[in-house]
Design a protein around this nucleic acid. Structure first.
Lengths: 141, 141, 141, 141
DNA sequence: GTGGTCTAGACCACT
DNA sequence: GTGGTCTAGACCACG
């Protein structure tokens, strides 16, 4: 789990941490049940305050992405116990609003629907294969 | 030009204004060359301070979405004088990062690539027809 | 005398007019004694208010670039009756400050002294020859 | 960081602040990575409102001259992360236009190309030495 | 009347 | 304590 933080970004650090963990899970770099570093370890490694990491973990817990394991820090939530609020295959209202804004920006940049869908397909597929590291045939397991 | 502002949102008001104008242009509700309300008028209508609208307009101007006509108020930029920084058919690095995050959220919500592309296509097409004139195609339904 | 005005520029229109006349004189496109269009004619041609052109002419008069000819509108000042305030070969304090700022910008852009002087020489020489239109040998007259 | 502001100048205060910081960086008085005073501190010291300093800092940030470190205050940008928009060794279109106007003014003031280049060289070199350390070469005179 | 600028004071999220 | 945001007033240059 290597975090790349931009301290001059407009995005709060705790959100950057949260976002990168979310993307790590989506890309398969972080697998269900996998143990996350402790708050202090991650804070030290990233050079930020423990409060900041704490905030990111709390947010992820509230969103149902991770679970606090009591004995051994936090873990990525197992698939079966999916996120509670997501009834079935839909994005949150906020995420949908974000998507609409991105589509608007794409239109202003001169992109047509074809262009945009191609871009989305590329980005969606980009990190689908690399679940582990060296041997990328996990989908056969 | 009717703005819907959420004063309790985490998104700054000036950004909400900016976003809605961007989406208005993308949807064709605001046409190139069309005159925007004056800062004061919009501020009054929306119940916010002129400085807030001022900031939104300044941002849009900097992004090349609108131009300040100096003699009258602000206008939507004509397409011939396109946005300077956007070379051609690509999203800004920030927008692309936002898109990647949304894709990650979609994956966590259990959406597959098909689901996501369908959603994107729907949203992209949603406001494509209206904007050509005052009487849209909806009345045919 | 064809003016190119940018109504969305941050520079006031009257200043744009003044600047272009100054550059016209410096480039030799406007010669000493040459008659300038009337305020109304220039205003009509440029599509601006007569007040605006009036302001530009007043500024140029005050700076000693043009003289009001009483009978026939304004004319470019003759060389012998040079600008009063410029004692000898120096820029105004304001212009010097502008130059210093430009030099600072050039340094930030990574230019060295050689680069900058080369650029200045190019720009200085650029419009030196074309005093009239077709026959560029005027310096022999 | 001592600012000299002219409150009766036509140049907005926030621009005066921005310009002096740009010139400070160019002259080496402000070094890459150096911490700038906080918005409040600078506002107090200069006797202006925090919003005014805020605007200057926002402009400098947008131009890539400084970065907001999020944890501490603002810092002069390191050279490795150079200004994004400036490809290499060229001035912005606006700065170039300013330079052309200055050259025109110089010609009207009776300066030849030699005179002007000499002046530019002097101004360019003026602050080149100091900035390497606290004790400059002047003490050798 | 327009946008641009500024002030004095305030609140909030982030660290 | 930091920057970011917002308000309610105000003045000014410009056209």
């Amino acid at each position: 789990m290597i975090l790349k933080l931009d301290f001059s970004s407009e995005i709060p650090i705790y959100l950057q941490i949260r976002n990168q963990i979310v993307m790590g899970v989506a890309d398969g770099k972080l697998k269900p049940g996998e143990k996350l570093p402790t708050i202090r370890a991650l804070a030290d490694e990233a050079g930020v305050n423990t409060m900041t990491v704490n905030k990111a973990y709390a947010l992820l817990k509230q969103e149902g992405v991770i679970v606090a394991d009591r004995r051994s820090g936090a873990r990525i939530r197992q698939q079966e116990q999916q996120r509670p609020e997501s009834g079935a295959l839909s994005l949150s209202e906020k995420t949908l609003a974000d998507l609409r804004l991105i589509i608007a920006e794409a239109k202003l940049a001169g992109m047509g629907q074809e262009d945009f869908l191609t871009l989305c397909a590329e980005e969606f597929a980009k990190h689908n294969q690399n679940g582990s590291d060296s041997h990328s045939e996990d989908q056969l397991n």
